[in-house]
Structures are given as C-alpha cells and as structure tokens.
C-alpha cells in the first residue's frame, strides 16, 4: 500500500506541472490566482501574428521532414533487416546519444562552411535537412521493431510468382509494415515539431518555428498567452502519441 502511495506521488510529479499549466490557461486573470474561466488567452494567441507564422513554419517543416525521414528510415530499416549494416546502424545510435547542442553546432558549422561555396542562406531548407537527419534513427527503430516479427518467406513467395524484388517489397512488405510506418511518421512529426535546440541554431530569419517563438516569450517572462499555446500543443501531441502507440501495438 505504501508502494501505491509512493507511485501515485511519482505519477503526480510527472503529470501535475502540465495539468496545472492547462488549467491556468483558462484563467481570466493575468496572474496565477484563479479569477474565473475565460478563453481570452486563446483568442489573444490566435491573433498573435508571430505565433501564427511560427505555427505555419513549424507545420511545414514537420510535414516535409517527417515525409522524408519516414521514407529514408523505412528503407534503411528494411535494408538493415536483410543484412546487418554496422556502420549505418552505429551512426544512427551515435546520433541518438549525441547531445542536441553538439548536433546543432556541428550542422551550423557545416552550413556556414558550405555556404562559402554555395549561394545559399540559413532558412527552411536547412531546418528540414537537420530535422530529417535526427528523425531517421527514430523511424528506423520503430520500423525495425515490426520487422523482427516478419517472415521473409512471404516476400519469397511473391518473387516465386514472378514479382521483382522492388515489387515484392512494395506490394507485400510495405502493407505488412504499414502500422509501424504510420506510427513512425507520427513520431517523426512530433520530434520535428518539438525541436528547439537544433532548430534555433540552423534557422534563418524567415524560418522562425513555434518553439522558437515560445522560447523567446518564455525568456521574457511568463505570459498567459504562452500557457494557452502550450496547452494546445500538449493536447495535440498527447493525441498524436497515443495514436502512434496504438498503431505500434497492432
């Protein structure tokens, strides 16, 4: 019984901060004392052009990078399942344990160095390139987990019946992997939409993302508008992740 109490407290510690934040986003007052229910901060957030621009940039980056990362990561997971690729899989593991700030500054160094030869600037494309790079590992982990239960003979049957290797992959393996691919895509969307540290280093003036706007607002002090935006993001994320988990367990 003591264990149950202790575990409840630990779960409370994990959930209370966000729940409190969501509750107070509906507070009509500007301060932390409860003054009544109101949607005024949500209305204020919807009128804030900086937030709206950030949201569009974030969505565009998240969808583009998730699409590319899902494709690349799925193909890689399949290739590594067929036969071990030690260098690539080691690289993906290292990318997972590398501190974000190190990944970020190294990408910044690459871009600044290569822009001496190319007529390019930091912008949406550099952010998307960076997001794809760190999302591939997540995608390939999720897809690899599903491949572990896959029987190669299904593909071989297709090939015996005259399908080429590519055709067998797309008509037999991909449908089998579909739930994992969908889950991986949602995960890639979430990690891209969430990222602040790497994005802030490789973004240009025209590619400020929602987390960057939230960060600069949070830096200036707590504003109820940030609470409202944060609550929306948390709820949407929570839903995305729950769907992703459902799909993975199919």
């Amino acid at each position: 019984m003591k264990l149950r109490l202790y575990a409840t407290l630990a779960l409370l510690f994990l959930h209370a901060p966000l729940l409190v934040l969501i509750v107070f986003s509906f507070n009509s007052g500007k301060f932390t004392a409860w003054e009544g229910f109101s949607l005024r901060w949500y209305a204020a957030a919807a009128r804030d052009s900086q937030l709206i621009d950030g949201l569009w940039n974030s969505l565009l980056i998240a969808f583009a990078s998730a699409a590319l990362a899902t494709l690349t990561g799925t193909l890689a997971a399949y290739g590594m399942w067929r036969k071990a690729a030690p260098v690539l899989s080691a690289g993906l593991y290292v990318s997972l344990i590398t501190p974000e700030i190190v990944t970020g500054v190294s990408l910044l160094a690459l871009f600044q160095w290569s822009f001496r030869f190319l007529h390019l600037q930091l912008g949406m494309h550099t952010v998307i390139a960076a997001h794809v790079a760190f999302s591939i590992a997540y995608v390939s982990i999720v897809v690899s987990a599903r491949l572990r239960g896959y029987d190669r003979s299904q593909e071989e049957a297709a090939m015996d019946l005259g399908a080429t290797e590519w055709r067998a992959f797309f008509r037999v393996t991909v449908p089998y992997l579909a739930p994992a691919i969908a889950a991986a895509a949602l995960l890639a969307l979430a990690v891209s939409f969430d990222d602040y540290v790497i994005t802030s280093l490789v973004a240009g003036v025209d590619s400020e993302t929602l987390p960057m706007v939230i960060y600069s607002m949070a830096r200036k002090g707590v504003s109820p508008v940030v609470n409202a935006v944060s609550s929306c993001v948390v709820v949407i994320f929570g839903a995305l992740v729950l769907v992703s988990e459902r799909l993975q367990r199919r």
Binding site: F193, D194, G221, S230, V233, V234
Partner: peptide, 27 residues
Amino acid sequence: QLVLLPFWTSFLIRTYAWIFLLRDTGL
C-alpha cells in the same frame, strides 16, 4: 503509457511549465 505520455509532449513546454510553477509569482 502514463509514464511515457508527458515524455513525448514538447520538451520545451515541459520545461516552461516549471517556470510557471517556480517563479516569484508562480503557483
């Protein structure tokens, strides 16, 4: 799932939530 759920929701916002709790005029 309860343990993992907050983990997948935005890292930045989870950190911001602590500013909201701990600052001088915080909860």
